[in-house]
Amino acid sequence: MQEKHFQAKIDAENKVEPKDWMPDDYRKHLIRQMSQHAHSEVIGMQPEGNWITRAPSLRAKMILIAKVQDEAGHGLYLYSATETLGISREELVKQLHDEKAKYSSIFNYPTLSWADMGAIGWLVDGAAIVNQVSLQRTSYGPYSRAMIKICKEESFHQRQGYEIMAEMAKGTPEQREMAQDALNRFWWPSIMMFGPQDSDSPRSGNAIKWKIKRQTNDELRQSFIDKTVEQAEIIGLKIPDPNLKWNEDKGHYDFGEMDWDEFWNVVNGNGPCNKQRLAHHKKAHDEGEWVRNAAKAYAKKQESEAN
């Protein structure tokens, strides 16, 4: 009965709010998806943070710092939204550390050159935007509101990345080569960010029925590819897929086979940087403990002095 009422509300495009009744599996699915999203924002600071001290100009450095700070902010919006489902931030971080919660596999690839800052902004943030624009219409109110806020800030991220790629593509032969190399390495992992193909995505059914997800993995991936091909052409870079071809009948690009063995290998912890990313997060968290304790002690002292 409650479940029927719930589904009717979803079907009528009404948002679900924290105190409303919801099926256990709806809550579980949201906690899993939203916390993975939050962890991705936070872990995503590492590959870019890697280049802050080596940014090629003061302008580039200020932009990169602002972008990394935005990612921290997006992580916090999403943790806040996830907490409304009755799980604490401490538990969420613990699940990440215990490897019970995942983050996007894309951040397990290393950032080898400055051009990777371009590729990440253009492709990784570009893919994230396609996903997040769709999620603005998700059925859970706090998640939807977090997405709206994030999307407003995210387009600067993609544009700054594309600008880096465009600049390097018309730079010296070495710079051009770096840009093409970054595109070669990040293209396939970026289009795999949308997750397994629909035929292989067991959780999609409920997520679509409950309108947590508004479009399937394959639909989102296609939309990203369709947008991105022309952007690559404009700056004279070549997408590393010999099967990429405009399909007049479908009105979409056809593209080659993705390497799902590699995808699952990285998801399951064996990517180039999985261990490093998690170890760094734990270290920062542990080393920050005295700060959290000091802040708490200070608050307590102030309170006792006020009384």
Binding site: S80, R145, R292
Partner: peptide, 29 residues
């Protein structure tokens, strides 16, 4: 450290307008 306190945040975008709920944050004081 135990959980920090959660605070709701209201922002006035311009002098003369009402404060509007923006979200929440964690903080000790």
């Amino acid at each position: 450290a135990e959980n920090a306190t959660v605070w709701e945040v209201f922002i006035q975008s311009k002098n003369g307008l009402a404060h509007k709920h923006a979200g929440n944050i964690h903080a000790n004081d």
